[in-house]
Amino acid sequence: MSEFFVDLGKVIAPSGVLVLGMAGWIDQWRELGQPLSERARAAAAKGGGHLREWLCEAVAVPAAADRVLMVRASTSPSPFDREPAIATLEFGLGLPWPETEDRVVPVWLGDLPVDRCGMVVGDAVGLDVWRGWDDEPADGLADVFYWGLYADNAHTQFGGERIARHGVDGPRGWLDLPVAEAVARAAELEAWRDRLHGKGLMVSVDEHTDVHRFQRAGWHHPLHAGAIDVGGCQVLGIEWDQGDHSMRHRGERATGQVYPVTLEADEAGEMVLRWAIPPYDFDDEAE
């Protein structure tokens, strides 16, 4: 049975090198010595390859530098809620399949785990300036969220909008506050909780790092995909539902939860990068 694909979004790779990597670790490449773009360029010059150092992992491949590249996905039911979850990601590279290579045989590049923080695909040079969780937000802003047993009481006391997400009501809170104001508001909520209840209210402050920005861009997408600008390039981030991640991908590399990445030829004879995640076997659950 052939797979049915849906469009997730578009990316550009003006450097001619496309990277698929773990969003939670993109910023750590520069802390390990050689920038991601240099490692990726070397791998792409050999036709593509898998990059791994410490907990950082990515795949880098050559891509057309002069056009928009499409990202598509097929789905299978999640074991968490039976909703559609990504089974295969396919990235058009805009380059002809090499005449010296057999179009029928995929080229294996390695394997990748599903990062709990999500995955990102984009230009290798653009991703060199990726802002991770510990980096300062470029715009100086942050979002504040609160939820839990006493969320309604907190809303009566402090206000806050409902921050809707696809398929769920989402937490309450405030978007686009200056960081100092966001931290102060969260402290007010926590002090009120501790004074009256001691527990029953969760509060978070998410600064506008690139990790948070791509997750926010995907809030209303059924597959949690969203595009943002990083280093002057449009990149696409894909966040996994945490319940689905817990049941399918938890443990990641350490427990062998990794999935093959290949280069293949599409029907038009152009190169595509594919990352295939096997569907969950519900029959095993019944045994």
Rank of each mutant, 00 (worst) to 15 (best):
A142I: 06
L109I: 08
E3L: 12
E239Q: 08
R195D: 09
E190C: 02
P171K: 07
V258D: 08
G126D: 07
G198H: 12
V59L: 10
P96N: 12
M22W: 02
K10P: 01
W25G: 03
V129F: 06
G226I: 13
R216E: 11
W147P: 02
I228W: 13
G33H: 08
A44I: 04
H50C: 01
G173I: 13
L189Y: 06
L127D: 03
S76E: 05
F282G: 12
D194W: 01
A13G: 03
R213W: 04
D284R: 13
A142K: 09
V68Y: 14
R195I: 00
L8A: 02
H50D: 05
G173V: 11
K199P: 01
V120K: 01
G33F: 11
V129P: 01
D128G: 05
A154K: 00
P35W: 06
H224A: 15
E188L: 06
G148F: 05
V205C: 09
Q28V: 15
L273W: 10
H224V: 03
V71N: 09
W147N: 05
E83K: 15
F158Y: 07
H212N: 11
G16Y: 07
A154D: 05
V59N: 07
T100N: 13
L177K: 09
E57N: 05
A23D: 13
D169Y: 00
G251A: 04
P79M: 11
M22A: 04
R195W: 08
S37M: 05
V272G: 04
P84D: 08
G94E: 00
A44P: 01
V19I: 05
L69R: 01
L196E: 01
W275Y: 14
G167L: 11
M202L: 06
